[in-house]
Simulated assay, not measured.
Amino acid sequence: MGKKGHGKSAAKGKTYVKGEGTNPSASKRILTPRKQNELNQLVETLHTVASSVKTACSAAREWEVHLEINRLLEKIQNIEKHLAPKAEDRSAHFEEFREWLIDNGAKIDGVKIAEFPGYEYGLMAEKDFDRGDLLLAIPRKLMLTVERAKSSVLGPLITSDAVLQHMPNVALALTLLVEKFSPDSFWKPYISTLPLKYTTVLYFKPNELQELKGSPTLEFGRCHPHEVRIRGICLE
C-alpha cells in the first residue's frame, strides 16, 4: 500500500506542510532555500555594518554608513514583503487596551482614543480641562523600556551584542517581537494597538532627509532611522 505522507501532501510537484493547509497560496508565505540563504547573508552584513555606527568618525562617514544600512534594509524588506501578516483593525483592540491600562494602575480621565481624518489615531478630550488637571498617569510597570528588556529572556543577548548595546531601539524591537508571538504575553493588549508603519522623520528615506539640511532634525533623523526601520522589519 505504500507509506503515508506523515503530515505532508504533494500537489503538482510541490510539498505543503500540514497545518498550513493544502492551499497552494500558503506556499507564498514561505521563503525558498535560495532566498533564505540570501536573507541570512544580508542580515549578517547588516549586523556588521550596523556595529560600525558608533565608530563613524565624521558626519560624512556616518552618512555613508546610514546609506549602506538603508540599502541593506530595502533589500531585506523586499525579500520579506510577502511574509508580512495582513494588517488588523487596530480600533477593535482599543477598549481591551484601555481596560488593561486601568487594571494595571493607569489613571485616565476625560480622554479617549479617536480617529482624526488625515492623522489616524490620537487622544481626544471628552470634557474641558483646567490648567493642572490630570489627563493620564501611567505607572512604570506599563512602560516597555530597555531596562525591562534586559530583565527578559533576551537579557544575556542584549548585554553581549554590540548592535543591541549601541542601538537600544533594536533591543526593544526584538523584545516586541518576542512578546508579539507569545500567546500569553502581558503586553498583548498594548501590542495589538500598534501600527505597522509610521510617518515620522525616523522613517524618512535618504532623499527626504536631504530636504532637512540646515535643520537639527536632520542629525536626529540621520543617526537613528536605521534603528527604527529594523524594528519595523521585526513587527511587520
Rank of each mutant, 00 (worst) to 15 (best):
G21E: 08
H66N: 07
K18D: 11
D161P: 00
G122C: 07
E95H: 12
S215Q: 10
Y203D: 13
S192D: 08
A11S: 12
S152H: 00
N169E: 10
A87G: 00
I108T: 02
N70S: 12
K213Q: 15
M167Q: 02
G105Y: 14
L46A: 11
P117I: 12
L72R: 07
N70Q: 05
A114L: 14
K28I: 08
L39N: 08
S185H: 04
W187M: 11
G2S: 14
S182D: 11
G132D: 11
S25G: 10
D133K: 08
K3R: 09
N207D: 12
I69P: 08
S215C: 06
L142Y: 01
L142Q: 08
L142M: 10
S192M: 07
L157N: 00
H226D: 07
T22A: 12
T32L: 13
K8E: 09
W100T: 05
E64G: 06
E211K: 14
G221Y: 03
S9M: 08
S160V: 00
D130K: 01
D109Y: 00
V153S: 15
L73I: 08
K188V: 11
S25H: 10
K213D: 13
A60C: 15
H166L: 04
N207L: 11
A162G: 02
I113R: 03
M143R: 15
M1C: 11
L144A: 00
L218G: 04
F220Q: 06
K213S: 14
A56P: 02
R222K: 09
V17N: 10
L196K: 06
I30Y: 04
L157H: 03
P156R: 05
A59G: 12
E96I: 00
R71L: 04
L177G: 06
A137C: 12
E62R: 13
A26G: 05
G7D: 13
A125L: 09
L135R: 02
E236V: 01
I76N: 07
S151P: 03
E208F: 03
Y119R: 15
M167A: 03
G214C: 07
L73T: 09
V17K: 03
